[in-house]
Amino acid sequence: MSDDRRLVRWYPRQWRERYGAELLALVEDMSDDGGPTRSQRRSLLLAGAKEHLREQALIGRDRPPLDRVRAGARVILVAWAALVVAGCGFAKFSEHWQMGVPTRDQLVPELMYGVVVVFAAVGALTVTGVVVVALPSLRRTFSAGRWRVLRRPVLAAAGLSLVALSATAGLAVWAHQLTPGQRNGTSVGYLAAFLCWALLIVAMVVAWTIAAIGAERHLEPSPLLARAVWIGAGVLSLSTVAIAAAILAWWIALARSAPWVLAGNQLGAPASPWAWPLVGEAGVAVTAAVVALLGATRLVSASRSRPTAR
């Protein structure tokens, strides 16, 4: 790629085809012999990113409200997918946490853990519900010959799910033959296999999210599906925020009353509350909550606006 073309690589392809040559001519005119300045490059990077966001109907008000609602819903779905990954990590990290916490200190973390579990179930049911409502539209989409477009991401996600399922079964059988110590880090082979399995799960979640977004783009939503997407996106964003807040509250409660649980130390041993796996999981969860709120804001503001004349 030539340096000129590299300058406009941040823009969407359609935009580049229409304005790319003009923009490069402008950059040439604006630049001294030394080529584009750093601020010009920054301007192109930011503007290119903005054009991408506009193309996806994620910013601006120049796209129809329905496009903006769907864009908001897609953002919330991505946030939920990230939260699912963080939630799996949290579930592993928090295994058997009650065993290290005195009974008198269990109320708040127990409550927060319950919030995580309840909203995880609510989110999973919501996604399932929207998929069920979308089935007739999906069938119509496939009948209209769009299966060819969606085939690759759907088959990739289904294939990864099969591999993940087999790997889960294999790992479970192996785990039952190990001692608790081996399962928790002393067996290097099991640890490596577990990390590969975790990566596989992440890949599966990412693949299904890509497939769902691809399918959503090609769906012609019925009024029922549009309503289901709106309600589902609202419930998912609420669940994402609730789970992120509950993970933080659970962490704070244990950091104050039983930090040794977070460090994996014995009961009563001094320990730092900064457990790095939990820092990562909570960080992803909070980021997902912020992104979900941004998506919900987009969804609500688009729903309130009237269709715009172009």
């Binding site: 304005y19 923009l23 402008l26 604006m30 010009q40 920054r42 301007s43 990077l45 503007a47 290119g48």
Partner: peptide, 12 residues
Amino acid sequence: LGPGSLYGAITR
């Protein structure tokens, strides 16, 4: 105006 801002405005 930077080139990105200018062509962003022209696009809109």
